[in-house]
Design a protein around this nucleic acid. Structure first.
Length: 265
DNA sequence: CCTATAGCCTGACGGC
DNA sequence: TGCCGTCAGGCTATAG
């Protein structure tokens, strides 16, 4: 789930459910998802406090606490948030359980434990230390920067889009969608894209990510022209009907339409 | 500096 | 049914 649009929805979800409620109890159930802090430290940082506001950078969600600290959540491949009242809804994959004074709970569910939880003082510093590029939907992103960032890259454009140090937020699924909408073959070397392709690509990054957010990051609600719902073996291109092809690029699966995303010489 | 790969973790699925 | 390999919306350390 968790690429930029998904995390944006998690942020909205946290805002709608969990702000300004006093945190009464904290259960950190897996050491694996705790970055560089103990469960006791996490508990100490959260208990008795409340969330004031949130923000997001790439795939990271930041929740500001009233003690000037930030809870930072990264969702790995399988993470998501769950707000509920009855403990029957608590699942074995809920790695962190925050219980509020109003009787509700916020769970961080992360089946594969590839996500990470941090407690930090300074969100700007965190982004810098992680080496994250500008948020793919953020205000600091302009075409000039984009062209320079892709400049002399020899890697496949798909890998470049997924490189969090260049742009933060795009993952395996949405890179496929962006390249499909832009009509670009995913293995094209980033540095070999002509001006026209770069312009289209730049525009589609914004368009695809905002469209996904508008539809609550739910593929079932996506426009009929989107490849994501057809992104599997046996899938057919929603634009031309051609059979969708799978490639391996830097260890990740790329799905594309050989008709609409033809390889240029 | 850049790029590609293995490893981390759990579970679902298909083939034999 | 069991076992095996593969795959899965990510990141990191490491090697070339």
């Amino acid at each position: 789930m968790p690429e930029l649009p998904d995390v944006e929805i998690f942020k909205q979800y946290l805002n709608a459910t969990s702000l300004h409620h006093k945190i009464e109890a904290v259960e950190a159930r897996s050491r694996d998802v705790l970055a560089d802090l103990s469960s006791a430290e996490l508990k100490k940082g959260l208990q008795g406090h409340n969330f004031k506001s949130t923000c997001r950078h790439g795939k990271y969600l930041f929740a500001a606490l009233d003690n000037e600290k930030w809870l930072v959540l990264h969702f790995g491949m399988t993470g998501f948030l769950k707000y509920f009242k009855k403990m029957e809804e608590d699942s074995p994959h809920d790695r962190l359980l925050i219980s509020f004074a109003n009787g509700y709970h916020l769970a961080y569910d992360c089946q594969r434990k590839l996500g990470k939880i941090y407690l930090i003082e300074d969100s700007k510093k965190f982004v810098k230390e992680k080496g994250l590029g500008p948020d793919a939907l953020g205000p600091n992103l302009n075409f000039k920067f984009f062209v320079e960032a892709l400049g002399n890259r020899r890697a496949a454009v798909k890998s470049t889009l997924m490189n969090q140090k260049i742009l933060a937020g795009i993952g395996n699924i949405y890179s496929d969608e962006i390249l499909f909408q832009a009509g670009i073959y995913p293995k094209t070397k980033a540095g070999q894209l002509d001006k026209q392709s770069l312009q289209t690509l730049f525009k589609e990054i914004n368009k695809v990510l905002s469209t996904a957010i508008e539809h609550r990051a739910d593929p079932e609600k996506f426009p009929a022209s989107y490849i994501i719902p057809h992104r599997h073996s046996n899938g057919n291109c929603p634009k031309c009907g051609e059979k969708i092809v799978r490639l391996k690029i830097s260890g990740r699966s790329a799905y594309y339409c050989p008709q609409c995303q033809s390889q240029k010489e």
